[in-house]
Amino acid sequence: MGLEEKVPDVMTGKLADLVGWARKNSLWPMPLGLSCCAIEMMATVGPRFDLSRFGAEVFRFSPRQSDVMIVAGTLTWKMASVARRIYDQMPDPKWVIAMGVCASSGGLYRNYAVVPGIDRILPVDVYTMGCPPRPDTLIRAVMELQKKIEELAIDGRRSREPAFVQ
């Protein structure tokens, strides 16, 4: 992206704001619905909590067409390579929300089959707590992610500092 080199800084700043505003309000989630959290994720899209108010209605199950991967549920080692492959297939810029304690840290499963947190295999932007987190919590996570997206520089440089949502 050589545009920002040719254009004066104030215009790049405005352009970055515009792009950030557009990106954050039209997030297309890729739901990696693995277990119980997936049901609360469905409830978030449901009539009461309605994630589409935040522009994130279009749940694209195709990674090629999505921005944010919501890992909802327990990741097992058998599923881990699949999750990583799906993440790799997503185009930049992409973010990851770890929904629930199983995705954040392995949850209540400390055993041979469960990945102790998806951050073993994926970079996570927002961690949520709850088993499962209420839909309100997921909406809060999406809002925190929106704050992060606004800070994304136009050339893709960004902070890797994750946010934690309770």
């Binding site: 080692w77 058998k78 881990a80 390579s81 990583r84 055993n111 041979y112 089959a113 990945v115 073993r120 295999i121």
Partner: peptide
Amino acid sequence: GIDNSISY
């Protein structure tokens, strides 16, 4: 477990 990530 033992070497859990072996398959991955």
